[in-house]
């Protein structure tokens, strides 16, 4: 109900209220953030006559959402609400939809990061931040400082995330531009060493880092550009079995798709 009211305020162009109810949560703030983007996007379609994307959220709208996070944090809501409120400030302040970035939101990012990277430095949840620092130019220096602080974390999830990042970049690069044999051997050896040290740790979504290494090594060996496509055999959408190799002799565009 509350988010509906909030959205309604935006539609009629009134300034959004700062909600300070005790039951406000970071998830509710995120929800209202997404609603705001959607409503503003409907008002000013991307592209338009000029082809220029207007900011999808105003400075005031963003600040109201950030203020709600600080209220949640200041209420001493306990865990996990406080971590989530600080984390939500980072999400909001570094969002790519307000251009140019406001000084106020940069300050909010700084303040929230300051607390998160001292009070929660050994918390496993901070590993998500080790994986996804903002790419925003103005935050780069601060983000690098936070990454440096993470090196001192005692969390095994953080240690795994820090080791994962450069390896995943190398694997992605190798996926686009195949390595020579020596380079491939070296990367696979580094991946196996990473798996031995951190393989049991869970990734942010789904499986473990060990699974990630297994799938990545498979891709390096069997899915490279210039290599033979692995066979696929299975049912089509009507339940009739067929094989990818049935189409040998033809150029095949293989599209992994879904309608969802």
């Amino acid at each position: 109900m509350r988010s509906w009211l909030f959205a309604a305020c935006l539609v009629v162009g009134a300034s959004p209220p700062v909600l300070a109810q005790e039951d406000d949560t970071a998830a509710a703030v995120q929800n209202d953030f997404v609603t705001t983007l959607r409503n503003n996007s409907a008002k000013a379609p991307v592209g338009g006559a000029t082809g220029v994307r207007p900011p999808l959220i105003s400075e005031d709208e963003l600040q109201a959402l950030i203020d709600r996070c600080w209220k949640i944090y200041d209420q001493n809501a306990g865990e996990p609400a406080e971590f989530e409120a600080l984390n939500q400030v980072l999400v909001l302040a570094a969002n790519p939809y307000l251009t140019p970035v406001s000084e106020k939101s940069l300050r909010a990012w700084h303040d929230a990061a300051d607390k998160l990277f001292s009070d929660f430095i050994d918390d496993d949840r901070i590993a998500a931040l080790a994986l996804g620092m903002p790419s925003n130019e103005k935050l780069k220096k601060e983000a690098d400082g936070c990454t440096a602080k993470l090196a001192g974390s005692k969390s095994l999830a953080v240690k795994a995330a820090l080791a994962f990042r450069p390896l995943s970049q190398r694997a992605d690069a190798a996926s686009n531009t195949p390595l020579d044999a020596a380079g491939e051997t070296r990367l696979i050896a580094d991946l196996e060493a990473f798996s031995a040290a951190h393989g049991a740790q869970k990734q942010m979504r789904g499986g473990s880092y060990g699974d990630w290494v297994k799938n990545t090594v498979n891709a390096l060996k069997n899915l490279k550009i210039g290599g033979t496509a692995p066979e696929i055999e299975g049912p089509d959408l009507d339940g009739v079995n067929f094989k990818l190799s049935d189409y040998r002799g033809k150029v095949v565009l293989l599209d992994f798709w879904g309608y969802w």
Binding site: G227, T228, K250, V251, D255, W257
Partner: peptide, 16 residues
Amino acid sequence: WPTLYLIDHNGTIRQK
């Protein structure tokens, strides 16, 4: 998603 692979007539992966 989507991910696309382009495979030539010999079954060789040429682009992704």
